Amino acid sequence: MIDTRTRVYDNVTFEVFSQEIVPANRPAIMRGLVKDWPAVQAALLGDEQVVGYLKNFDIGYQAESLIGDPDIQGEFFYSDDRKGVNFERMRLPIPDTLDRMLALRGQDNAPSLYIQSVPIPDCLPEMVMDNHIPFIPKEIAPRIWVGTPLRVQTHYDLSNNIAALVAGKRRFTLFPPEQLANLYAGPLDFTLSGAPVSMVSLESPDLERYPRFAEALKVAEVADLEPGDALYIPYFWWHHVRSLEPFNILINYWWKDGPANMGSPYDALLHMALSIRDMPEVQRQAWKSMFDYYIFGSHGDPVAHLPPHMKGPLGEVPAQARRQLYQQLARNIAGKL
């Protein structure tokens, strides 16, 4: 049993969000933040009404949809032999998928359908104008998620995230980043949708096989959303998502802080796995000290004693210089192939 409930904020303004919620670096429910959206108002009238509302904006876009057999019971995951996944990906017209979802409501032994993370400007562009969070910059594209009853396995995003519920009810179970070792992450190079996922079932964890998961549960927190609510999920917070009603719609916004042309931490992690992980232990510890000092600032600014022109990639790096460094890095890596 998870006892901790995510903190709830009412009447959230930009000032509250930027000065209270974000600095706390914890999930936060923003109750009723999007309750006035036309999409939410349509959903409150019924599933058919909100589906009709979405169809009004359709431009014929073929959206990637996940389809799972009835036996997966809405849990999109790896196949039993862990060599594949337990669902198929197909590109389908949005109106057709929505109609099929409505038809499946209340059916026993029904397949699972999921429209996952489709940028709204690509598929329902005119919908953006009337369904927008005022303090989200216009250049951050909202994404839509629509599904039958489903469970999204515990994962994290390398972005800040605001998830706004339009229809149905959803439960988020969240774990802080430092629980990585207790969540038994899956492979880096064979993921379900980009980020590694926990290999542990939240509903029925096998604590003999994954004993440290019990420690993660002690610090987990739960956020239940209803139509009009939004949830702020900070960078790298793990989250499991479960829909609690037969038809659900969610819209989310992802954004990153820092330079727009920043490299991928995954690329750095993979490079370290190939270049450092198999070193003798004494050498690995030396490089751990290097990263602690130069990257994580364990002793403050590592180049504070140098004049600006000598700080190189550890100082202020203009866009052109950043591109040149990436090009040099690509050449260095290519030399290993």
Rank of each mutant, 00 (worst) to 15 (best):
I251K: 00
D96C: 10
G52M: 05
S18Y: 11
F57N: 06
E281P: 01
I72V: 04
Q107K: 15
T6Q: 07
G68P: 03
N160A: 11
E316H: 08
Y61L: 09
P119M: 06
Q324L: 14
A216D: 02
L217D: 01
M129D: 13
Y156M: 10
K256P: 03
A181Q: 09
K288S: 12
Q41P: 02
R212L: 15
K256W: 05
L207D: 09
D206S: 09
A163F: 05
V8G: 06
D108M: 13
V146I: 15
P125F: 11
N161L: 07
E208T: 13
Y293S: 09
V146L: 04
R89N: 11
L113M: 13
A167K: 00
P134M: 04
K83A: 10
L45V: 13
G186Y: 01
R212T: 15
K138A: 10
P93W: 03
V12E: 02
V128A: 12
P142M: 07
L124W: 00
F77L: 12
R151P: 00
I59T: 15
D278W: 10
D3M: 14
S289W: 13
R31L: 01
L150K: 08
P27R: 01
V16A: 15
P246I: 03
K218T: 13
R7K: 15
F175I: 02
D189S: 11
L306E: 08
Y293G: 07
S65W: 06
Y293C: 07
T13D: 06
V12A: 05
G168A: 03
Q179K: 07
H305A: 14
E316C: 03
P95S: 10
K336A: 15
V282M: 08
Q19F: 03
N109R: 10
V50I: 15
L150N: 12
E221Q: 14
A42V: 12
G228Y: 02
L314K: 01
D267E: 11
K256H: 11
S243N: 05
A260V: 14
N261K: 08
I140C: 08
M272E: 11
T173V: 14
P205E: 12
M199R: 13
L180Y: 12
C123W: 02
A103G: 10
P176F: 02
D189Q: 11
S79D: 11
M199E: 13
L66Y: 05
V241E: 01
V146H: 01
W238Y: 14
M30C: 05
L225Y: 02
G228D: 02
P318L: 08
L66V: 00
P134H: 07
W237Y: 06
I29G: 00
Q49T: 13
D99T: 00
A164F: 01
D229L: 00
